Amino acid sequence: MTMAAHNGFLERNGVQAKLLTALRQLSVLQPEDPITFLCTHFESLVTPASEPSQACVELLRDADAINPEQLDSAVYKAFRMLQGTNITSDVLAGRVEGVAVNTILTELCVNLDPVLSASLLGKLKVSPEALHSFPTFSSILTPRLKLQAYLKMARQVFESIDVHQTGSIQGEMGEELLSRLNGSIASTSAEMNAAVVMSPSDVTTILQRSGPSSGGTMTLTEFKTAAGQIFINHIPMRV
C-alpha cells in the first residue's frame, strides 16, 4: 500500500484530525500522566451516545475526588461524552447545553441530604438555555464530587469518636471532632485541603448550629449537615 493510500485511509476516517486534537489538548492541559489522559480522551470518542447524561452521572459517581488526577480525568471524560462521540473540535472551545449540565448535577444530588442538596443546587445550577464551556462544567461538578468525599471523611471521623456506635456524641467532644476532621482533610491532596479546611469561625458556626456547646449532643446527621453547609459556603461564586 502506498503512502498516499495510507494517508487517504487516515483522512477518510478522521484519524489525523482526532490525533491532532488530542495532542493539542495534551499540550494545553499538560496533565501529570499524559498516557492516562490520552487513554481517557480516546475512550470518550467511542462511548455509546445513548443517554449521555446518565452515562456521565455513572462515570462521575465512581470518580475518586481525593485523587486530583482521577477527578480531573473523570470530569474531562464526562464533558466529552456530553458533547457527543463525533466531536473533533478542541474540548476547550466546545460547549454543552445548560439543561444537560443541570440534569447531571441534580442526579448527583439525589442521595444528598435534602438541605445540602437544595443549597448546592441553588448555588451551582446554570442557565438551562445557555451553552457552557469545559471550565464552567468543571467548576459546577467538581465541588459536588469533592463534597461527597468530604462527607465521607466527616462520617469516618465521627465514627472514630462514637466508638459505641450510639449515633451521637456529647457536646464537649464537638471541638475534638472538628479538629480530627481538619486533620483528616489536611492529610489529603492540597486541592482538597484548600477547598474545605475549616477556619476557627467555621468551627464556632458548626458548634452553634448543632448545639453541643450548650452541653447537648450532636448526631452524625447534624454534624454532616452543618459541616456540609460550611463546605458549600466556601465554594467560590461563579461570575
Rank of each mutant, 00 (worst) to 15 (best):
L19C: 13
L19T: 10
L20W: 06
T21S: 15
A22T: 06
A22I: 02
A22M: 10
L23H: 08
Q25P: 03
S27W: 13
L29I: 14
L29M: 12
P31D: 07
P31F: 03
P31N: 08
D33G: 08
I35V: 14
I35T: 11
T36C: 13
T36Q: 15
F37K: 03
L38N: 08
L38Y: 09
C39Q: 15
C39R: 14
T40R: 07
T40C: 12
F42N: 04
F42Q: 00
E43G: 03
E43F: 15
S44R: 04
L45D: 09
V46P: 09
V46Q: 13
V46I: 15
V46L: 14
T47Y: 07
P48I: 04
P48W: 03
S50C: 12
S50T: 13
S50A: 15
E51A: 14
E51H: 14
E51W: 12
A55T: 02
A55K: 00
E58V: 11
E58M: 12
E58F: 11
L59H: 06
L60D: 00
R61P: 09
R61T: 10
D64I: 10
A65C: 06
A65P: 02
I66G: 15
I66A: 14
P68W: 00
E69A: 12
E69I: 04
Q70R: 09
Q70G: 12
L71T: 00
D72G: 11
S73R: 15
A74F: 05
A74N: 06
A74S: 11
A74M: 06
Y76I: 10
Y76F: 15
K77W: 01
A78Q: 05
A78L: 09
F79G: 01
F79K: 02
M81I: 08
M81T: 01
L82W: 00
Q83P: 05
G84F: 07
G84M: 07
S89D: 09
S89V: 07
S89R: 07
V91E: 05
V91Y: 08
V91A: 09
L92K: 04
A93P: 05
A93R: 14
G94W: 00
G94R: 02
G94L: 04
R95C: 05
R95D: 01
V96C: 07
E97N: 13
G98A: 06
G98R: 03
V99T: 10
V99Y: 12
A100Y: 03
N102M: 07
T103P: 05
I104G: 08
L105D: 00
T106N: 10
E107S: 15
E107G: 04
C109L: 04
V110P: 04
V110S: 07
V110C: 08
N111E: 06
N111T: 09
N111C: 05
N111P: 00
L112H: 03
D113W: 01
D113N: 11
D113E: 10
P114G: 05
P114N: 07
V115L: 05
V115I: 08
L116F: 10
L116G: 01
S119R: 11
S119A: 14
L120N: 07
L120S: 09
L120F: 10
K123G: 02
K125T: 02
V126C: 03
V126H: 02
S127V: 03
E129D: 13
E129R: 11
A130E: 12
L131S: 11
H132M: 05
S133N: 09
S133Y: 08
F134Q: 00
F134P: 00
